[in-house]
């Protein structure tokens, strides 16, 4: 009997360990698993490497995790979103590391990591500072940069609906990095807005097949990051 449902957020993130690499879904607030991130703040694991497109905003969600001193390094494409204050300060004072990756290269590194591809060649970043020190090869007259697949110990993602096998569907542009992060992590932890009966999801519309998912927690009324930021809220 396969049932990946977990009763509480705290249980779902309990084994995230110091020094783990954690992929966190979301593009800005869209798709950010804010309740799982807050559970990770309560749990307290430190020295984390976090993979996300951005670095959070205000003092909640990913920004709060960073502000709480739990993140050693960010791997991201755009650490300068509007309202992002925590990361820039820590970065300027040398308290956090940054691995800057072009957005499409980041996505493909995650996809490759999940698909068993150790490295690939891409035309992105050729001739720029982000290609420096990387192996290059010419194919059919064009230069390409070698990039490595990216894996993680854990992925924290958010979806719209899940069944107990971990089949997932998402909501609009909140999908973004979640399906590929689910593939690339050893343990994928999902917060879903709603759980549905097995068989309720049409197999033709399942976006993430359950094989990529380990744990599901229902958060039926998730917080909206931009609202919390507008209200000046902090976590914890």
């Amino acid at each position: 009997m396969i049932d990946k449902r977990i009763a509480s957020l705290a249980e779902a993130v309990a084994d995230i360990f110091d020094g783990a690499t954690v992929m966190i879904g979301g593009f800005g607030e869209a798709g950010s698993p804010i309740e799982l991130i807050h559970a990770l703040i309560d749990q307290g694991a430190g020295n984390l490497t976090v993979v996300n497109n951005n670095t959070g905003s205000g003092h909640v969600g990913l920004a709060a995790l960073i502000e709480n001193g739990q993140v050693r390094k960010m791997i991201c494409s755009y650490p300068r979103t509007l309202g992002s204050k925590v990361f820039p300060e820590l970065y300027r004072s040398g308290k956090i590391k940054l691995d800057l990756v072009p957005q499409g290269t980041l996505a493909e590194r995650i996809r490759a990591g999940g698909a068993g591809i150790p490295a690939f060649y891409t035309p992105t970043s050729v001739g720029t500072p982000l290609a420096e020190g990387k192996e290059q090869r010419n194919f059919a007259g064009r230069d390409y940069v070698m990039e490595h697949g990216l894996k993680a110990d854990f992925a924290l993602i958010k979806c719209q609906q899940a069944d107990c096998h971990g089949n997932l569907v998402y909501n609009k542009t909140a999908r973004n990095f979640a399906p590929i992060m689910a593939m690339a992590a050893k343990t994928t932890i999902v917060q879903t807005n709603a759980q549905v009966e097995l068989g309720a999801l049409d197999p033709e519309v399942v976006v993430t097949p359950g094989i990529f998912v380990d744990r599901i927690v229902t958060v039926s009324d998730p917080a909206q990051e931009s609202k919390l930021v507008a209200e000046g809220r902090r976590y914890p």
């Binding site: 494409s77 755009y78 940054l98 800057l100 957005q103 982000l130």
Partner: peptide, 8 residues
């Protein structure tokens, strides 16, 4: 703060 997004 370097930030490249999807431009490259």
């Amino acid at each position: 703060i370097p930030a490249v997004g999807g431009a490259m």
